[in-house]
Amino acid sequence: MSAPFAAQLLGWKKLKKNGNPVPNSADSSSTPSKALAIAILEHLGVEPEVILSGTPKDLGPALERAVQADLEKALPETDPSRTWQIDHKKVVADFAQDAHLGSLKKVVRKNPVLSADLGFDYLIRPDVTVGIELDSPSAESNPFLHAAVSCKWTIRSDRVQNIRHEFLQMIRHRRGRLPHLVTVTAEPMPSRIAAIARGTGEVDAVYHIAFAALKEAVEAVGSGQQKDDLAECVSQGRLRPYEELAPTLATW
């Protein structure tokens, strides 16, 4: 099992420097990363070294849009009792828990001292937001932010810090219940996944778009450390199949 869009995104690309094919989820400078990514493609049935012309070149935004489209379809089917709002790059100030940040932005803009001290880091735009319309007599009431999804095609140290920073700002500034804060990725190396899956609660869970293929790949070609890292993340519920994301959001 894998995300319904996994086969449309995961594939091969040509390296600019020599034209050699490499999996598009691999770190081309890392032999272990390439080995795991190749094994994942083999498990998914993507033919070796076939360059897929339909595979998006800009995979980060493509993953964001794929997750948005999938949740738009899956959540109303899983729980039709709620009115879902799935958006791309919507500012958190448009939701009930953070509506006060819109007023704060106006004050900060008018005050150079506050602007210098606070900046606008608190006006986060998650890659994908899951909102729920509230039963309210006011037609202008903001939807409740049920989940924020950070989509990272692969995991690097700078991307880990970006995820933690954005989610930490959301935790600090909210007024109301915390939304589900999750990451979706195609990263092939468990050691890099562990860098974001581990932590002190900024991220609830990491969902992998080819979870079953990842497990098979690590078992087949992963090092002892990669196997240990994967086992740790899975056993602690920090790394989960993407297929569980919509059911989790619908029952939470």
Rank of each mutant, 00 (worst) to 15 (best):
T200E: 05
Q68R: 14
D121K: 09
E64V: 11
N162Y: 04
P247T: 11
V108C: 12
I51C: 11
E243Y: 01
Y122G: 02
E232W: 15
H100K: 12
R82K: 13
K215R: 15
W252T: 12
W252N: 08
W153A: 04
T200L: 07
G201W: 07
H173N: 14
E166I: 12
G11D: 14
Q97P: 00
H100W: 15
A210Y: 08
R159G: 10
A116W: 02
S30H: 02
G119C: 05
K90D: 04
E219S: 13
R240Y: 11
K227W: 09
F95N: 07
R192V: 01
G102Y: 11
G45V: 02
E72A: 05
K57P: 15
P241F: 02
D204I: 02
H88D: 08
L181F: 14
S2G: 00
T154Q: 13
H173T: 15
L239H: 03
D79E: 12
A66L: 03
H208C: 10
V128D: 02
V108H: 08
A7W: 06
N142M: 13
K73E: 13
V46E: 10
R109N: 05
A62C: 10
D87A: 13
A116V: 03
L118Y: 12
D94G: 12
G224F: 05
R175K: 14
Q226A: 14
L63R: 02
H146V: 08
A147P: 14
E42F: 08
I163W: 11
H165P: 00
T183W: 01
A96N: 11
R240A: 07
L168Q: 06
H146L: 11
I40C: 12
I171V: 12
Q8W: 01
S138T: 10
V22D: 01
P4I: 01
R65I: 04
N24T: 05
N111E: 12
E232Q: 14
P247M: 11
K106F: 03
P179Q: 02
R65Q: 12
E72F: 01
T83P: 00
A96G: 04
V107P: 00
P190I: 02
D98V: 00
F144Q: 14
V221S: 08
D127H: 06
P48N: 09
S150N: 11
T55L: 10
P179Y: 01
S235P: 06
A231R: 13
L181V: 05
A139V: 08
G224T: 07
L118H: 11
S2I: 00
V91S: 05
Q225F: 05
L168A: 15
T78H: 08
E47V: 08
K106N: 10
S81I: 01
V203P: 04
L134E: 15
E72Y: 02
A194F: 04
V92Y: 09
I171T: 12
G45W: 02
D58Q: 13
Q68K: 14
D87P: 00
E64Q: 13
L118W: 09
P190H: 07
